[in-house]
Amino acid sequence: MSGATRALLVGAGAALGGLFREVLAEFLPIAAADPALVAPALLVVNVSGSLLAGFLRSLAAGEERKGRDPSGLEAAMVVGFCGGYTSYSAFVASLHEGLAEELPWTTALAAATIVLCPIAAAIGMRGSGGYPPRPAQVSAGSAEKEPA
């Protein structure tokens, strides 16, 4: 896959993921009506995105084991869509805002994100054929993976 094709796939997937995140975290009536509910909405976004990323990552590993090239799926859906849908910077900004404004549940929501996202990813992996045979190496083309 050429660099331009990969960039297009990553960008297109991320644009769709970013749109989903915006809609869920900002425009849901329950979150928009009360700013304190934006952080829980973001938790839902990050956990569901991690679940999907785990599912797709394991699916891609399965495709690779069958001799098929999963790089397009990984670029568009794992790096692009799931990467664009979830957001670490929004998590940090939300944590800062929650601490500054002493919003309830701020620390608990942060801890929940840190614990639940990897658990969701692991559940996703189990849901699509089991864990990949080795660490995913930040999902960027299976042929280029090497030990971290």
Partner: peptide, 12 residues
């Protein structure tokens, strides 16, 4: 930034 890649990597 991303949480999903971090989550997948953390499992690994």
């Amino acid at each position: 930034s991303t949480w999903s890649s971090l989550a997948v990597e953390t499992v690994g």
